[in-house]
Simulated scan of single mutants.
Amino acid sequence: MDFHIDDTTRELSTLVRTMGEQLVTDDSLRELDARFGPGTEADGGRDHSTARFHARYWDELVRAGVPAALAPESLGGADLGVVGEALVLRELGRVLAPVPLSPAIRAAHLLDLVGGCDPDLAEGIATGRVIAAVADPDSPEVDWAPIAHAYLRPTPEGLIMPAEFDVERTIPVDFSCAGLVTCATVRAERLAEGAAEVDALRRRVHLAAYQWGVIEAALERTAAYASTRHQFGRPIGSFQAVAARLADGSIDVDAVRLSTLRAAFELDACNGEPGAPAHAAVASAHFWACDAGHRLAHTAVHVHGGVGLDRSEPAHRYFLAAKAGEFRLGGATRQLIDLGAVLAENGDPWEYSA
């Protein structure tokens, strides 16, 4: 499969990385932790002031047109595909950016498939001016629900979009913004057949891509620490046991990178009708994101030693983010079960692929 990335997508991901490195600093994340983080759990409901949300970075992403660039063309976007989305989500993961880009993308693509939708709402969500939360059918917890202006729940019967909804805030492993949503029964807007299935697969690719960025940056930071931390008069990175774990981590990051890109390319190629190749690719990407995420999270902590769990240092955030990603993805065993079911029913979907 050709993993060629076009210039527009490459420039967009570079822009997101540059902005993230400038704005989502360790100091800015420490400020968010002080508001809603370890030891300061709040029950603010839908109070934006207590949400772990990097408002400044989100405002800059919106101003730069990043959500719009990933929206469908019918809503004024560039529609860079799932590959473009994955590469941008990777950049968010690298800096642990707490911003609601994934639900903005998912909501825009869902609304693109709904006839007669409020055009102002669709345009607001596509550009990021209206924050959206999109439910996952496999989890009662909805990411970004506490600060969302709009709530969407895709189902096989259609898209549920209540005008009003209540949120009970939850406390995920990484202290991210999430909650349980309740709303009155409302009519479901008609969706194209298979749209809910595509959205579920898109969400899984987004999670894997974010996890890719998390473990990639965690490994880089850990390798840098191992080269400067001295023990017995030598950098600990020169010890064989430490060097071997870092080398294994590099292989794991590559596995997540390749499997995530494969899943994104397969989802783009299915034209809204995902078959065995797309399902197998997504399950494979999820397996690696869970398995590698688990290993890299523990490698980072072990190599950092006590510093890895010190809340005054940034390493612990990468540990929490990687573990949260593993849990949100459902764990490695679940992905192998999904992949096994695809193979048992369809055989090897890539047996004759180039």
Rank of each mutant, 00 (worst) to 15 (best):
D6T: 03
L12S: 09
T14I: 01
L15Y: 06
L15W: 02
V16F: 12
E21K: 10
D43H: 15
G45Q: 04
S49Y: 07
H54M: 03
W58I: 02
L61F: 05
R63F: 02
P67D: 07
A68W: 07
A69K: 05
L70E: 08
D79I: 09
L80T: 08
A86R: 07
R94F: 10
L96T: 04
A97W: 04
P100I: 01
P103L: 00
I105R: 04
R106I: 14
L110P: 05
L110Y: 05
L113F: 00
V114C: 12
A122F: 10
A122K: 02
G124A: 04
I125E: 01
A126L: 13
T127N: 05
R129T: 11
R129P: 04
I131A: 08
A133Y: 13
A135D: 12
P137A: 11
D138S: 12
D143R: 14
W144M: 07
R153L: 06
P162M: 12
A163W: 01
F165T: 09
D166S: 14
D166I: 02
V167K: 06
L180M: 13
V181F: 12
V181G: 08
T185S: 15
R187Y: 07
R187E: 15
E197G: 09
L201T: 08
V205A: 07
H206V: 04
A208Q: 08
A209V: 09
Y210H: 15
V214D: 02
R229A: 08
G233E: 02
G233L: 11
I236Q: 05
A241W: 03
A247D: 12
D248A: 01
D252G: 11
F265P: 01
E266I: 00
E273K: 08
P277M: 03
A278T: 14
A280W: 06
V282S: 02
S284R: 14
A285P: 09
F287I: 06
W288Q: 12
W288S: 09
H294V: 10
L296A: 01
V303Q: 03
V307K: 08
L309C: 01
L320N: 08
A321P: 08
A322E: 02
A322W: 04
L329A: 03
G330P: 11
R334W: 02
Q335I: 07
L336V: 06
L336F: 03
A344M: 03
E345F: 00
E345A: 14
P349V: 00
E351K: 13
